[in-house]
Design a protein around this nucleic acid. Structure first.
Lengths: 202, 202
DNA sequence: TTTTATTGATCGTATGTTCAATAAAAATAG
DNA sequence: CTATTTTTATTGAACATACGATCAATAAAA
């Protein structure tokens, strides 16, 4: 029953279905047939709207990156001090939206895909540069010369927590993910004893 | 020219070729034909020795894990204090052997593969548990109750540095990878100012 | 002669892509 | 308001390709 104006709806449905399929399979080794089936449309329609499997994958990746950027931007509003800015970035990077199982799976898969796809690599490079820039801006006044060092540490911690989450056997082994990064930042900025959080283990 | 006793030789050649193929392709989407070709043998021989593609992949994974374990064990010899023990683990985890491009690619790919292969997940779980145990042993006397927290932080940092290395555009953006972790450990253990290393940026 | 190492042709299967056909809505004309 | 034309949405069969797996055959060593 063709209604006009279905294109953006179908595109989003197919992208969502692709992310679901990636999560279910645990890799990019998925079929357009499966994606189309999950979206409730025929095989041909996916090709009609995206042209090829590769472009559908890239579109899904771009969707997640855009969603993450929005999350960061929202987090950075209503924030005044540089220290709060750092917390906002951490909270956006490790927030519930980014920790949904499908999203974690997809990000991990995209990381790997970036090793063989130029488009994917460029997209990830944008994210990497933006995160680095977002971290450096509040870190310059707080950490001075050590800003780049701390930024690299925070970024690595975030990525590491993320990748370790992807291996969680259903139960998440370590729940205080913000605490790990906040504690790191506090210590880097000169607090010998992290003051706000007890930093307890799971 | 069949010589007797070729089995272990061929197995290792095929495993090495598989790791090369994974690095070249950037994923597990590789063909047995390619692997066999890289090893200089026929397609059929790979099946003869490994039975299936999956078992060859698992064998390659097991090879890398075993190589890493050996590296850690060697590093832990000739070490006395708990603090030195920590450094030894860090050095083994981020050492040159583990940072060869083929090895980095393979590890990243195996991380993803663990999401859909039970065998792969179990193998990685062994590595994760062993690393955690190795870190906790020297951390208990040094960090007391915070040992588990610090262990999780160190592990996440290592994994994060590792995954970020895999995206390096040829040049490695941040070369002082030991420094990041050592600095983290020092600060967690109470040194306000990291004393031994300047912890400079790249 | 028996065992071990090795090959490559062959088969079935699954996948990405193409394409002609269909059906409903919208636009246009009478 | 109806009839026809055009546009948009959608389908699934068909095709070429590539892959993993199987297997009978071969050749050298024991």
């Amino acid at each position: 029953m063709p209604k006009v104006g279905m294109e953006p709806i179908r595109r989003k449905e197919l992208i969502t279905a692709a992310i679901e399929a990636i999560h279910a399979r645990g890799s990019l080794d998925i079929t357009i047939r499966d994606i189309a089936s999950r979206a409730g449309v025929s095989l041909g329609l996916a090709h009609h709207y995206f042209g090829s499997k590769d472009r559908l994958i890239i579109a899904a990746m771009r969707f997640l990156l855009s969603q993450f950027s929005t999350q960061v931007r929202n987090s950075l509003q209503c924030v005044s001090t540089p220290r709060d800015r750092l917390s906002a970035i951490v909270k956006a990077s490790l927030g519930e939206e980014q920790f949904q199982p499908e999203v974690v799976s997809a990000w991990l898969v995209f990381y790997v895909h970036a090793q063989m796809s130029d488009d994917a690599r460029q997209l990830l490079a944008v994210y990497t540069r933006r995160l680095r820039s977002n971290l450096l801006y509040p870190l310059r006044p707080l950490a001075g010369e050590r800003a780049e060092f701390v930024a690299e540490g925070v970024a690595a911690l975030i990525d590491g927590i993320y990748i370790r989450q992807s291996l969680g056997d259903g139960r998440q082994r370590f729940r205080d993910r913000y605490g790990l990064v906040e504690d790191y930042i506090d210590r880097q900025l000169g607090f010998t004893q992290a003051e706000n959080n007890q930093a307890g283990t799971a």
